[in-house]
Design a protein around this nucleic acid. Structure first.
Lengths: 132, 132
DNA sequence: CGGATTGTACTAACACAATGATACAAGATC
DNA sequence: GATCTTGTATCATTGTGTTAGTACAATCCG
C-alpha cells in the first residue's frame, strides 16, 4: 500500500494517512477486503510512532472505511464509502486551485505550469513503470 | 496584498503568511519598498490574532525579506531574496508532484486532471478580471 | 497447547500553534 | 505638543500532535 508521509508540510501525520487511505478506497485502488499493514509495520516503515498509526486506523474505522478483525488485522470495510468520479474531481479541484494560486504568486505563467505538469508526469510515470 | 489563509489545512497560519509573502517578493509581485499591511489590520482581515501576524512578520524580517521602520510600518526589504525562474519552477514542481500523487490515488486519469487544470484556470482568471 | 501477532488502552511528557489581554516605546501626523 | 499608529514584549492559557513506554486481551498458527 503506497502511503507517503511528509513530515515537514504541517499537516498532521495521522491525517495524511487517513486521507490517503480514504482516497485509495474511495477510488477503488484499495478494494473491499484488502488488508492494511499492521500498525507496527506501517509505523516502522514510515518511521513514526505506532500510536500515530493507531490513531489513523481508529479514525478510519469511525469513518467506516476500515474494519478491524480483532487480532487478524485491518481490512477495507464492506460499506467503505466510494466516491463517484464527480466527487473525486471536486477534491482535486481544490488542490488545483491552490496550485494555480501558488503559481500566480510565483509569477509563473500558466503555460509554464502546464509544461511543468506534463514534464513531471513523464518522470513519475517512468518511475512507476519500474515497479513490479 | 493578496494573502489567503486556510484554517483547516494543518499548516500553521504564520507559516502560510511567511511563505506567501516570500513568494510574492521572490517573484517581483511585491516590489522592494512596498508596504505590508499593519499587523493589526492584516490580523483583522484574516480573522486571526495579531500575535500570529506579528510572528509571521518577525520571521520574514529574520529571512531578510522584510524591513521594519520602527513605527512607520513594514516594507519589502532592499536585499529581499529574489528567485530566478528556475528556482520558482522547482518549488512548483514539488506541488505538482503532490497533485499528481493525489490524482493517482483518486484514480483520476491524467487527461482528466489536465482538463481540470484548464477549467479552473478559466474560472479563476475570470474572477481576477473583475478586480480593479 | 503455546507462542506469536493483532489491535487496544492508558499514562506521562514534550513541543508548538494560537488566542487573549495588556502594556510599552518611538516615530508619524495633525 | 498631543494624539495616533506602528511594531515590541510579556505572560498565561488552551488545544493538539507526537513520542515513549507498558500492559492487556483475543485470536491465529504451528
Amino acid at each position: 500500500m503506497d502511503v507517503r508521509i511528509n513530515q515537514a508540510d504541517g499537516q498532521p501525520i495521522y491525517l495524511q494517512i487517513v486521507n490517503q487511505v480514504k482516497y485509495l478506497a474511495a477510488s477503488g485502488r484499495l478494494r473491499v477486503g484488502d488488508e492494511l499493514p499492521p500498525i507496527r509495520v506501517l509505523a516502522e516503515r514510515l518511521l513514526i510512532n505506532p500510536n500515530t498509526v493507531a490513531r489513523a486506523y481508529r479514525e478510519l474505522e469511525i469513518l467506516g472505511i476500515v474494519e478491524k478483525r480483532k487480532t487478524a488485522g485491518t481490512y477495507v470495510a464492506e460499506g467503505a464509502p466510494t466516491l463517484i468520479k464527480r466527487e473525486r474531481i471536486k477534491i482535486l479541484a481544490d488542490r488545483v486551485d491552490m496550485l494555480l494560486a501558488e503559481a500566480h504568486r510565483l509569477d509563473v505563467p500558466f503555460e509554464d505550469l502546464l509544461a511543468l505538469v506534463n514534464k513531471r508526469r513523464e518522470t513519475l510515470r517512468f518511475n512507476e513503470d519500474l515497479k513490479p
